[in-house]
């Protein structure tokens, strides 16, 4: 049976299929690229002799304080990433190495949280933030996401797969609980951290509804909310501006992904998130 899968036609078919899907996937990006670098009249026309221009980017950059939005998003994502790593690591470590009465039930409760869409809690979260005075702050946007059930679950599974012998060897050497975590568990789980980091960074880079609702000022708005200025449908969509703005906002992620592509893909294979 398995030999069949390796036969030439099947491989060819898989390759063609993969290419087809890849092209389909990259088409919107290519369209965005084309439109962003050309004057508006070429937005829906493909013409190789069309003049190239950076004018769209100039207009976009002038229309909104993008540098500020980038900074806001960068702070927001970094804050969430660091907090999630610390909190989820500690929680997962406790679940794996320090079982206590009811820890299984507690873990189930954490898993239950995976089932709840954050949007359902919009009003309640808003009320909480308003009570502690954190509306319209970067911390306020981040607060509901600082701990992640998915992160805890993922790290727990990874830690569980680490051989007990490693932990015991470290303990024989005289390492304390914190040293075991930092010297044994975290290094072994590095691919999981990278993979989870990528997921969380791209999620929060793209998050829209919650930041929209809690932010009121340019000083706190992340780039997704700032981009809204260009999605003004009533007057018809100016595709060159929209694509230029979109390219601007996804470029940092895209560049990071291209640079670290190999590491990312490997981490995903090892961490088992796909």
């Amino acid at each position: 049976m398995s030999a069949d899968f390796r036969s030439t036609p099947v491989i060819a078919l898989t390759t063609v299929g993969a290419w087809l899907l890849a092209v389909l996937w990259v088409l919107p990006l290519l369209y965005g690229f084309w439109t962003a670098f050309h004057p508006a009249e070429f937005a829906a026309r493909f013409d190789l002799s069309a003049p190239w221009t950076l004018d769209n980017f100039r207009r976009v950059w002038d229309a909104a304080p993008f540098s500020r939005y980038f900074l806001n998003t960068f702070f927001l994502v970094s804050l969430i990433l660091v907090c999630q790593f610390v909190i989820c690591t500690m929680a997962a470590y406790a679940f794996v190495c320090f079982p206590f009465r009811g820890s299984e039930i507690l873990f189930m409760l954490v898993l239950v949280q995976l089932m709840i869409m954050p949007e359902v809690l919009l009003v309640e979260n808003y009320r909480t933030l308003s009570r502690i005075g954190l509306l319209d702050t970067t911390l306020g946007i981040a607060l509901p996401y600082l701990a992640s059930a998915f992160g805890i679950f993922l790290f727990r599974q990874t830690f569980k797969s680490i051989p007990k012998e490693l932990e015991e060897a470290a303990r024989l050497e005289g390492a304390n609980a914190l040293q075991i975590l930092l010297r044994v568990f975290v290094p072994v789980a590095k691919p999981t951290y990278i993979a989870y980091g990528l997921v969380t960074v791209s999620y929060h880079w793209n998050n829209f509804l919650w930041p929209l609702v809690v932010t009121n000022s340019v000083e706190t708005r992340p780039i997704t909310v700032g981009l809204q200025v260009f999605a003004t449908v009533e007057q018809g969509v100016d595709w060159s501006l929209v694509t230029a703005a979109t390219l601007l906002s996804v470029t940092p992620l895209l560049v990071a992904f291209l640079l670290f592509q190999r590491q990312f893909v490997q981490s995903f294979m090892r961490a088992g998130i796909r």
């Binding site: 919009l122 808003y126 009320r127 308003s130 929209l212 609702v213 000022s217 200025v229 999605a231 003004t232």
Partner: peptide, 21 residues
């Protein structure tokens, strides 16, 4: 407070109104 398009503004205003602020 510039709050996006109509739909976004309505979401934002109603969320804020429901939580009392």
């Amino acid at each position: 407070v510039y709050s996006g398009n109509y739909l976004d503004t309505t979401t934002k205003a109603l969320t804020a109104a429901k939580s009392g602020t």
